[in-house]
Amino acid sequence: MSSATYKILLPISIMVLWMCCIKASRELQENEEIPALMAFGDSILDTGNNNDLISVLKCNFPPYGMDFIGGKPTGRFCDGKVLTDLIAEGLGIKETVPAYLDPNLQSKDLPTGVCFASGGSGLDTLTSSLTSVISMSDQLKNFKEYIGKLKGVVGEEGANKTISNSLFLLSAGNNDIAIIYLDTPSRAFQYDVPTYTSLLVSWTSTFIKDLYGLGVRKIGVLSTLPLGCLPIIRTLHGGPMRFCGDNANRAAQLFNSKLLAEVNSLNSSLPQAKIVYVDVYNPLLDLIKNPVKSGFRVPERSCCGTGLFEAVILCNQLTPFTCDNVSEFVFWDSAHPSERAYRTMTPPILQDLKKSFS
């Protein structure tokens, strides 16, 4: 190489190296923006916290997990990944989010987030009591314990930074309305729908304020699903034609509208907090009403269960029917969407979250 050529190439090489460093720095900043994801609430987000509970609401057995990594049942209420995993994956945090109570959880998993949600849980203390799962208050206790463990891994300053910059997801209200209010007489005798939904929103607000008091600043609050169109509600309340249950959907819509208003109020009253209402009701309802548009064929029945089996929430090892092609089904079991349904719903959710927390 001639001296002249060297003199020409050296500045170019320095420029390329500088540009690579700038790009790497930007990527690091983007990753640091949302370094971890945490999840609280119910089965829409649970990644396996119920596995060792004495409760009927667990699913760490086939056919659950048939489309998960390695075909392994992990306690996710789905054939594959749930929203917790898909949102973490879409934000570039990690491919799956482990359950906090997973006995195989490792210290290295803590800085990028864990899941505290428990399938069957709810905002009403009666909900988790009747379903024998982890209450919201106990999920909060687990989070406080997690903070202590995180400090042991990254130090107090690192833990505080992780908590303030991480995204926290909350999904609650589904079981309170669908199980406790509609199918048990206790709350329906005590409260009318407007009063009960207001109570649920009040409990949501208290939980968010508790998180805020622990240093949390970025929260995504999920709406309920269109509960009346779940296969189990169709079977129990939809009549011979299994129509969507209007009462359940109206209660869900009322709760969601009040929840949105409370989220807006909290954004005004909690300094430095950014709380986002995440609509899952309408995206899922659109899949149910217009399945062909997204490549689905069966919007009203579940893949692993049919007939009388859709009168119970979960599939089990004795269920005599599991569909041949789950990708055609909006619902995996009688109460939970399939992974493909979740994946179809996730892109607009990710877009909103990225826009809100950028």
Rank of each mutant, 00 (worst) to 15 (best):
R234C: 01
T195E: 09
D138E: 15
D333M: 07
L259P: 00
E157P: 01
E339I: 03
T84C: 03
Q139T: 08
L270Q: 07
P111E: 03
M66R: 13
L167N: 05
M15H: 00
S2I: 10
I134S: 00
L222F: 13
Q139C: 06
G120S: 02
G90A: 04
A36Q: 06
L227C: 10
E95Q: 10
G307H: 06
I69V: 12
W203A: 08
V263T: 03
L266Q: 11
S171W: 05
E156M: 13
V193S: 11
A39N: 10
S132Y: 06
L57G: 01
S13A: 15
D324I: 15
A117P: 01
L17S: 09
S186I: 11
M38I: 14
Y146F: 14
A273N: 02
S135K: 03
L259G: 01
S334P: 10
R301Y: 02
F143Y: 14
D124G: 01
N49W: 04
E328Q: 14
E32R: 12
D246I: 10
C323E: 05
T235L: 02
T5F: 11
S132M: 08
N49G: 08
I208S: 03
S334D: 02
A273S: 15
L270M: 02
A4P: 00
P73S: 05
M1P: 13
L254E: 14
S118K: 01
I44N: 07
N325V: 15
Y64H: 00
G213C: 13
F168C: 08
C323P: 07
R340W: 05
L126I: 15
G122K: 04
R301S: 06
Y191P: 08
T204F: 13
T206V: 11
V326N: 02
S121V: 04
L211G: 09
L9Q: 11
P103L: 04
C21T: 09
S269W: 01
I219C: 12
S128F: 01
E157A: 14
L199Q: 04
P347W: 08
P291K: 13
R297H: 15
M1Y: 03
L214W: 14
I179R: 11
L28Y: 07
G215Q: 06
A178V: 04
Y212K: 06
T47M: 01
N175L: 10
K209G: 06
N160S: 10
N51S: 07
V154G: 12
D52F: 07
A335Q: 11
D176F: 12
L284K: 02
N290Y: 09
W18V: 12
S338D: 05
N282I: 04
V193A: 15
P226R: 03
M66S: 07
K354W: 04
L105Q: 08
Q317E: 11
K258P: 09
D183P: 00
Y191S: 04
D46L: 02
L91P: 00
P271T: 12
P98W: 02
L167V: 11
